[in-house]
């Protein structure tokens, strides 16, 4: 559906997007994840024709966004970071304008407007000036605008920023719902959000695409070991003896807290349960009680930090290399 090839964008000497390539298929929800200033907005602006690229190209349904912008743009609905609303219009007037600009007219336009108003639940404010609406409603009007013309791809740039928790949940539900009929691409710097609604995650850091996979696969990808946290009434030395007999333990820390001792055990075994079973049996053998055992699986947050920090440290070594 969308194919981005070797996209590069420079502002003078600053490289905002650095040789990014990916393909997006129909009918999934894609999440762009990255810290602030990573280049998410720049990539989205280029994909929607709001910005030119220094190099590379973007194909939307086979149309090049730079060569055949009108055909390509008909396939996309875009909500920029700041909803592009005319404050003096009412939502109804605004949607009418956008619909007409997208080439709709007559009864088709009316039907479409009614449909998106229902989808985004803005029926009760549709005749009030946009300037008087709350941020959540403004965001909805922005999304409604993107939905007009029934585009195949909907691109939303940080759609939940600045909303209250209830509105965030509502917008997320809306995105999930849209994912059934459209291809949805949205950006966020909130991990739990991406984890909750995306089928595919693209992690972007410093203008580079550092990972592109399903959230579950990304977790598997991670090389960092899993952690087991135990609380026991055994003492420091006894725990060391027990753990020494168990394979696949990379590292552990022990902390005595009054009558109890807490230990954090890191393992690189593929099956964490196998290790926890051995720990349990080891303690049982010594006749010591395990009061608590918890598994801490690495989640997307760890992957995110690791991947973005990795690209940071790479850069650091590179620049050091240049200095030398």
């Amino acid at each position: 559906m969308i194919s981005v090839e070797h996209l590069t964008k420079c502002y003078g000497d600053i490289v905002a997007v650095d040789d990014v390539s990916f393909k997006i298929d129909e009918g999934h929800v894609y999440g762009f994840l990255g810290p602030n200033g990573a280049g998410k907005t720049t990539i989205m602006n280029i994909m929607t024709g709001c910005l030119s690229a220094t190099e590379g190209r973007v194909l939307i349904g086979g149309y090049d966004i730079f060569e055949e912008p009108c055909q390509a743009k008909k396939l996309i609905g875009y909500l920029p970071e700041q909803p592009p609303l005319y404050m003096t219009d009412t939502p109804l007037e605004y949607l009418k304008f956008v619909g007409e600009a997208k080439g709709l007219g007559g009864s088709e336009l009316k039907e479409q407007i009614d449909k998106v108003i229902e989808q985004t639940k803005i029926e009760n404010v549709k005749n009030r000036p946009i300037s008087s609406l709350s941020k959540g409603y403004k965001q909805r009007v922005g999304i409604a605008q993107a939905l007009l013309g029934n585009p195949k791809v909907i691109i939303l740039d940080e759609p939940t920023v600045g909303l209250d928790p209830i509105q965030i949940v509502e917008i997320r539900d809306l995105i999930k719902e849209l994912g059934r009929e459209h291809t949805v691409i949205f950006s966020s710097h909130i991990l739990s959000e991406v984890q909750a609604i995306c089928d595919q995650v693209l992690i972007i850091s410093k203008g580079k695409l550092v990972a592109f996979d399903q959230p579950e696969n990304l977790e598997k990808l991670l090389l960092a070991p899993n952690e087991i946290i135990i609380t026991t009434d055994a003492r420091d030395k006894e725990i060391r003896d027990i753990l020494a007999k168990i394979n696949h333990i990379v590292d552990f820390t022990i902390k005595e807290e009054g009558a109890y001792t807490k230990a954090q055990i890191k393992t690189d075994h593929k099956d964490v349960y196998e290790v926890s079973r051995q720990i349990f049996l080891g303690f049982a053998e010594k006749n010591k009680t395990l009061l608590e055992m918890a598994l801490k699986k690495t989640d997307l947050e760890d992957i995110f930090i690791e991947l973005t920090e990795k690209s940071n440290s790479n850069e650091a070594t590179e620049s050091e290399g240049i200095k030398q």
Partner: peptide, 14 residues
């Protein structure tokens, strides 16, 4: 100023 030019750029009009 209102960033509505982004809308105009993303619409299928020249």
């Amino acid at each position: 100023k209102q960033k509505t030019d982004q809308l105009l750029y993303s619409l299928p009009i020249t």
